[in-house]
Amino acid sequence: MPIVVKNLTYKYMRRTPFEQEALSDVCLEIADGEFVGIIGRTGSGKSTLVQHFNGLLKPDEGSVTIDGLSATGSGLKELRRKVGVVFQFPEYQLFEETVYKDIAYGISKLGLDGAELDRRVRKAAGAVGISGAMLQKSPFELSGGQKRRAAIAGIFVMEPKFLVMDEPGSGLDPAGREEIFAYVSKLHRDFGVSVILVSHNMEDVARYAERVIVMSDGRIAMDGAPRSVFRRIDELEGMGLRPPDVLYFIRALKSLLPGIDDGILTVGQAAAELEKWLAPALARVPARAPMASAVTAQALARASVASAAVVAPASAPASEAPASAQASASAQASAKGGAGAG
């Protein structure tokens, strides 16, 4: 059973002069097994919305139903077992003597113990890259990134059916981010866990989400497949958002190659599309031996050089030069940033 939100309105500081409407008349349905990205500028109501999913906030108007359970009803415990929420900066919720105990906190509250508890704790710890030796340390001895991983493991261990993550990657190094997202994708793919990812990082959302919801001023402004949402660059910018750089790159290229697919979301897709388009021209560019880890970035760089090579002689130099300069400049940026994004 899905998450159903009907006409949800929520106000902060109700009945005081500071009253502020955080959500107004939000209607939303999230099916089982979906991977949804929620984006929006700070204060657009994303976090407020997801806090309704496990009954931390109660709607002022409207209703929220998860798996047939009302988020206002008495089944809160049941609801929170089903819906795991990883908050922003979850490392500040650590409190136990050892990392092991902290990860186990949630499931020991559910009455698990013994071998089953041990198995689940170790599995969750493994998923976020926390080694056996680290489990016996105090959580306060860990580094910031390790703390974050331990805290995320504390949610994974509950094995929720719906996983809500509010900015899980911020402040993590690229490798740590990659690791956590890899595990979340696996949960999603292999176990049908619904994932709701709240993030400012458009690259992450573009890469993992199957559906993107854009919040603006407490309302849902857009809702659809990433391809169709991210294509509306100007509208998104108007809401204080910035789609992944690669979309700007494609848009810049579009004036040169009008037939190019502009529903591209990742560096990898862009490289593939460009290779397809520029296969003949590529043959003219001397190929260096590509490094295994940077294949797509290299391909992208090659392709953009090739596209410049194709366009530059053919087009009127005065009008087209800035466009192609911009294109290759952003190609460089993407090549740098996307090296690991195979």
């Binding site: 415990k77 077992r81 795991g84 929420v85 908050f87 500040y92 919720q93 906190y105 509250k109 504390g154």
Partner: peptide, 13 residues
Amino acid sequence: DKIIKAQASRGAD
């Protein structure tokens, strides 16, 4: 408030 919410999400009662 934030911590209470986080722990409540982990099943604290």
